[in-house]
Amino acid sequence: MTTAPLQTDLRTQAENALADLFVAMPLVTGSVLASTDGHVIAADLDEKRQKPTAAMVASAFALGGRLAELNGSDGADELTVRSAKGFVLILAVGTGAALVILAQSGVNLGLLNLKARQLVQTLSELLSVQEVPGV
């Protein structure tokens, strides 16, 4: 599928969904929905960090997919980067996009994982409206 830029109303809906997570989880500091080739589809993050974040997510997600092949899987469903200051979660959204969520350490990881999966579901449905069959 291609992930051409979302129509404005769909982008707004996606960004509303990202903002809902931001509101629900105080230690979440931002999120970006990126195409697997590294473009911003929707974002809840400062403007200047959006593009580099989307590109890094695409690279990491592609490498994660190759790592998953070590286990015989076809691609990655999610990646987690845990560091001194927090977490970076990357989750597949359909086949052409990935969601990255930035959270500070101390975040309730169980709740975040639950809400992240709900968000992925919402975003996949929004993206599927845009899918072009056979492309």
């Binding site: 291609t2 080739d37 592609a62 052409g96």
Partner: peptide, 20 residues
């Protein structure tokens, strides 16, 4: 690490290297 292209790049070719 090939991923499908989108936007203007899709007119040039179907997939592109995004990692290495």
């Amino acid at each position: 690490t090939e991923a499908p292209t989108s936007g203007g790049e899709a007119a040039v070719k179907a997939t592109t290297t995004v990692g290495m």
